[in-house]
Simulated scan of single mutants.
Amino acid sequence: MILQKLLPVLFICFSAVTAPLLAQESWIRRTIQKAITDTTAPGKPSFRIYPTLAYSPETSVEFGFSSLLLFQAKNDTLNRLSEVQAFSFVTLEGQYGIWLDNAIYGNQDNWFFLGRTRFQRFPLLYYGIGPETPGKDPALIDANYLLFRQRVLKKIVPDFFFGPEIDYQQLYNTNFEQPKDHFYEKPTGSDGTLNVGLGAALVFDNRHNVLNVRKGFFGEISFLKYHPGLGSDYTFHGINLDLRSYHPSGKRNVLAWQVYGNFFRGNIPFNQLALMGGEMIMRGYYSGRYRDKSMLAAQVEHRWLPFGFSKRFGAVAFAGAAVVAPKIADFTTRHLRTSGGIGLRYLLFPKKDIYLRLDVGFTEDGPGFYLFTGEAF
C-alpha cells in the first residue's frame, strides 16, 4: 500500500502551534522552530531537515528524514529557484531507502538539470499487467532497486531546453512471493533485470518556482531507447509526455492541470512499464496498481495557498482519470479509472513560497495518504 505519511505533518503543524508553550531551552522546541522558520535572506540558499514517521502493511513502522535544499544560481533572485530534495527511511522490517530529486537551473537558465535517483530495499506489490487486474491478493516482489534518471538540458531560446537523457534501472536480489489464493505468471524481469536507456528530451518551461507554481507552463516530450548494446537485458523504447499548466484564479489561488503519458514498445520488464498511481498523478492508487505498455492520464487541481484567513495554512482539491492498455489503439473508456481527493498545506518557507503538503486520494481501492514538500505537479 501507499505509505501513509499522515503523522509527520500533524506532528509538525501541531508543534508549530504549541512551540511557544515549551520551555525556552527545550531541544524539541528549537528543532521544530528551525524546521519551520524561514530566516534566510532573499536569494540565499535555504536548507531544512525534518523527521517523518509512517506505517504500511508491507513495512510496519517506518522512520525517516526528509530534507530540502533551495537556492538560486549566483544567489540572484532573478534566476529561477532550484531545488534538491532528499528522503531516507528505515523500517522495523529491516527495509531501507534513499530518494533524491533535483531541478537545478544555471545562471540565466543556460543549463537545466532535471532528474531523480532512488535506492531502496522495498517490497513491490504486483497485481498483474493490463487494464483489468484483480484488486486483491497481489504478489509481493521483494528486491533491491536502483534508479538513476537525469536530463542535461541546454537552453536553445528563452524557456526552451534540449539535451540528452539517461535512464539506469536495476532490480536485483529479487524474491517473488505468490499470494495464497491466487497464482501469477512471473512477469518479465521479476528474477532481476538491468536496463540502460539513452535518448533526448525537449522541454518548454517558464515556471519560476517549480515547487509551487503560481503561473506558467511546463511541457516535456522525451524518447528513450534501451538496448543490449547499452548494457540492457531487454530491448525496448518509449516516448514520455508531460504537460502542466497553471492559472491564477485570485490573489492566492491557482487552478492547475496536467496531462501525462507513457508509450512503450518492445520487450519491457514489469517494473518499467507505464505505471498508474503514486504521489504525483492518480493519487490514491498504489504505484503500479495498473500497468501496461501505454498509459494516458490527466488531472486538475485547485489550490488555496494560503487560506484568506491564515498566513500559513492552505488546502487543495483534485481529481484525475487515467487508462492503461497494450497500445494506444486499445484505450477505451470502459477501462478508465478515476481518483479524487483533498489536501492540507502548511507554508514551510514563507520567503520562497514553499508548502508542505498532505494529500489524501480516494479511489475504488480505498484512500492513499502522501506527505511531501512541494506540490504534486
Rank of each mutant, 00 (worst) to 15 (best):
M1E: 14
I2T: 09
P8W: 09
V9D: 13
L10R: 10
S15P: 08
S15Y: 11
P20R: 05
L22E: 14
A23D: 14
A23Y: 15
Q24V: 13
E25Q: 12
S26C: 12
W27K: 14
R29F: 11
I32T: 14
Q33F: 06
D38T: 03
D38K: 06
K44H: 14
S46F: 09
S46W: 12
F47H: 12
R48K: 13
R48D: 10
Y50E: 11
L53A: 14
A54I: 13
T59D: 12
E62A: 02
L68I: 15
Q72L: 07
K74Y: 13
T77D: 00
L78F: 14
N79Q: 09
R80A: 00
R80T: 06
R80Y: 06
E83R: 08
F89V: 11
T91Q: 05
G94H: 06
I98Y: 10
L100T: 15
D101G: 09
Q108N: 12
Q108F: 12
W111C: 01
L114T: 03
R121S: 02
G128Y: 04
I129V: 11
I129Q: 06
G135C: 09
F148K: 01
F148H: 10
Q150I: 08
V152H: 11
V157L: 01
V157K: 04
E165A: 00
I166C: 02
Q178H: 09
D191A: 07
G192N: 06
T193L: 06
N195V: 00
A200L: 00
V203L: 03
V203D: 02
F204G: 03
F204A: 03
D205A: 00
D205P: 00
D205N: 11
N209K: 07
V210E: 03
L211E: 09
V213Q: 02
K225N: 13
P228R: 06
P228K: 07
P228M: 05
G231R: 08
T235C: 07
F236N: 00
F236E: 00
H237W: 15
G238C: 08
L241S: 09
R244P: 06
Y246F: 15
Y246S: 01
R252S: 10
R252K: 12
V254A: 06
W257P: 13
W257Y: 15
Q258T: 13
P269H: 01
A274C: 14
A274I: 13
M276S: 06
G277N: 01
I281H: 08
R283K: 05
G284A: 00
Y286K: 03
Y286G: 02
D292S: 11
S294T: 15
V300R: 12
H302I: 10
W304D: 08
P306F: 00
F307A: 03
G308R: 01
K311P: 06
R312F: 08
R312N: 10
A315P: 02
A315T: 07
V316H: 05
V316K: 04
A319V: 12
G320V: 03
G320E: 06
V324M: 02
F331T: 10
T332F: 13
T333H: 06
H335I: 07
S339G: 00
G341M: 02
K352E: 15
D359Y: 01
G361A: 04
G361S: 05
F362I: 13
D365A: 01
G366K: 02
G366T: 13
P367W: 07
F369L: 09
F372R: 07
T373G: 07
F377T: 08
F377C: 00
